[in-house]
Simulated scan of single mutants.
Amino acid sequence: MATDYDAQRKTDDDTESIDAIKERIPSKPSLNDDDVDNADSFSIPDVVNEELDVVILPLQENEFTCMSCFLVKPLSQLGSKSRAGKICTECAS
């Protein structure tokens, strides 16, 4: 079925007054002293304290670093060479 997205869409819900809509919106809760005191009970998860072991490999012979996006790419994705350095095919296009 074809739909005309430019046509005005009116339903029975559109006849509701702005005052009725405002009444449905809950009032914003105010901050009191109890909320401020509970800020001290926040604890950082133990995941933050764990050490991560990451092995960093040096740049391989068949890889280059694109001087536009700064990603390490294989030489098969070499797009062009400029004075600034090597550029990958994605950044060259």
Rank of each mutant, 00 (worst) to 15 (best):
M1P: 13
D4A: 14
D4H: 14
Y5T: 12
Y5D: 12
D6S: 14
A7S: 12
A7E: 09
Q8D: 05
R9F: 04
R9M: 07
R9S: 00
K10I: 08
K10S: 04
D12N: 08
D13R: 08
D14V: 05
D14M: 04
D14R: 04
T15D: 14
T15I: 07
S17F: 12
I18L: 14
I18K: 14
I18A: 13
D19Q: 15
A20D: 15
I21K: 15
R24N: 10
I25A: 12
P26C: 11
S27W: 10
K28C: 08
K28E: 12
P29F: 02
S30P: 01
N32K: 11
N32C: 08
D33P: 04
D34G: 03
D34P: 02
N38F: 03
S41H: 11
S43C: 06
I44Y: 09
I44A: 10
I44E: 13
D46Y: 07
V47H: 09
V47Y: 12
V48K: 13
V48T: 08
N49D: 13
N49A: 09
N49H: 09
E50I: 00
E51P: 05
E51T: 06
L52H: 03
L52D: 05
L52A: 08
D53N: 08
V54S: 03
V54K: 01
V55A: 07
V55K: 11
V55T: 10
I56K: 04
P58A: 09
L59Y: 06
L59G: 00
Q60Y: 05
Q60V: 03
N62Q: 10
E63T: 01
E63D: 11
F64Q: 03
T65I: 09
T65Y: 00
C66I: 00
M67K: 12
S68Q: 14
C69H: 01
F70S: 06
F70H: 06
F70R: 05
F70A: 02
F70Q: 07
F70P: 04
F70Y: 07
V72A: 03
V72S: 00
V72Y: 00
V72P: 00
K73C: 04
K73V: 01
K73E: 03
L75H: 02
S76P: 00
S76E: 14
Q77T: 03
G79Y: 01
S80R: 13
S80K: 11
K81P: 00
K81E: 03
S82I: 05
S82Q: 10
R83H: 06
A84N: 06
A84W: 06
G85T: 03
I87V: 15
C88N: 02
T89E: 06
T89D: 09
E90R: 06
C91W: 04
S93A: 11
S93K: 13
